[in-house]
Amino acid sequence: MMTPTSKAKNNRLRSRNRLIGTALAGCSVFALNACSSGGDENSKAASTPSSTQSSVAPSNTADPDAAAKQKVLETYDLMWTEQMKAYRKADEKGTGLQKYATLDALGQTRNDLARMREAGTVVRGDVKHSKTEVESIDLSAKTPKASLKDCMDISGWQTYNTKTKQVQPMPTNQKTRYWATAKAERWDGQWLITSLTPHGDDEC
């Protein structure tokens, strides 16, 4: 007979299998060009593993949640690193995205990758992050959760069309620095990014 504890664990595992992406309220972080211009530039942004690292301030030892916040930031950085690997080749295979994000968070990314393959585009350049911080964290909740804020700089990335062998220009009205917010939850001791939302009109 299944105990309440084992039932709860199975429910959580089913939830995790149902989830795993970068749910971005209709437009992915890298699809902002497409949202503003209507072109094939649905998936943009890139970064070498080193350039995806956020500018994280040293842990504040006076903050009792400092260690947990650092873990959240590490997960966020790792998620970005693996996501950029996928955008560079328009393919999630061979990346560790599922280790750091839920299905909900990965859904838009996977849609972007499919459109990229259809359009024959990949990403070059990089995306930079600064002022990244955990704005709130609740470790007492049944499922611990946190909220993050990040200033993204997409001025260094390019969308390259492998069919025409040309770089696709960025729309002239595209802001290159804007805020993004993210949510994270801790499942079975592992922090996972559950959503990532760009705020393309909110310059940072």
Rank of each mutant, 00 (worst) to 15 (best):
M2Y: 07
T3D: 07
T5H: 06
S6N: 07
K7D: 09
N10K: 13
N17V: 06
L19M: 08
A25C: 05
G26K: 07
G26T: 11
S28I: 12
V29K: 03
F30D: 03
A31S: 10
A34K: 02
S37K: 05
G38I: 05
E41N: 15
S43R: 03
A45L: 13
A45R: 14
P49T: 07
T52Q: 02
P58Q: 11
S59H: 04
P64M: 08
V72Q: 04
L73W: 01
T75L: 08
Y76F: 14
L78E: 12
L78D: 08
L78I: 01
T81W: 00
E82K: 04
E82Q: 15
Q83D: 10
Y87V: 12
E92D: 10
K93F: 05
G96K: 15
G96N: 15
G96A: 12
A101I: 02
T109C: 03
T109L: 15
L113A: 02
L113R: 01
R117L: 01
A119W: 00
V123M: 14
G125I: 04
D126Y: 11
K128S: 03
K128G: 06
H129G: 01
S130L: 05
S136P: 00
D138K: 11
L139V: 13
K149R: 15
M152H: 05
D153E: 05
I154C: 00
G156K: 10
W157S: 15
T159A: 05
Y160G: 01
T164F: 07
Q168F: 05
P169K: 14
P169E: 12
M170E: 15
N173V: 04
Q174G: 00
K175H: 11
T181V: 11
A182W: 08
A182D: 02
K183R: 07
A184K: 00
E185L: 06
W187N: 10
Q190A: 10
L192P: 00
S195G: 10
T197V: 13
T197W: 08
D201L: 11
D201T: 14
D202I: 06
